[in-house]
């Protein structure tokens, strides 16, 4: 299943500037693995050994995956994933 992932400004150096990329996978974890194969290094920025880094917010549609099934959250056709950074400065 193909999903569109919205990429925040700080990670666009890894996606050659793209603000949206396509990835495949049945769960959020699968999608992150697919992103890693296309854009090496991205998984490390999002996850540590315990899972998604505490300060990274991943949304499926409008829902934070913390309130769903975390990395195991299953994706439906047409779902959009957003990686939302914390807010900087002022």
């Amino acid at each position: 299943m193909e999903t569109i992932v919205r990429i925040p400004t700080p990670l666009r150096t890894l996606t050659q500037g793209a603000d949206e990329v396509a990835a495949v996978g049945a769960t959020v974890a699968d999608v992150i693995a697919d992103l890693e194969s296309k854009y090496p290094g991205i998984k490390d920025r999002l996850c540590d050994e315990k899972g998604v880094r505490k300060f990274i917010n991943i949304f499926v549609g409008d829902e934070d995956i913390r309130f769903l099934e975390g990395l195991k959250t299953e994706l439906k056709n047409g779902d959009r994933i957003s990686i939302v950074p914390a807010i900087a400065g002022g």
Binding site: K54, A88, G89
Partner: peptide
């Protein structure tokens, strides 16, 4: 230390 961070309010 990184552009993608969780220190809300601070600027990289």
């Amino acid at each position: 230390s990184d552009s993608l961070h969780g220190l809300e309010g601070l600027k990289h």
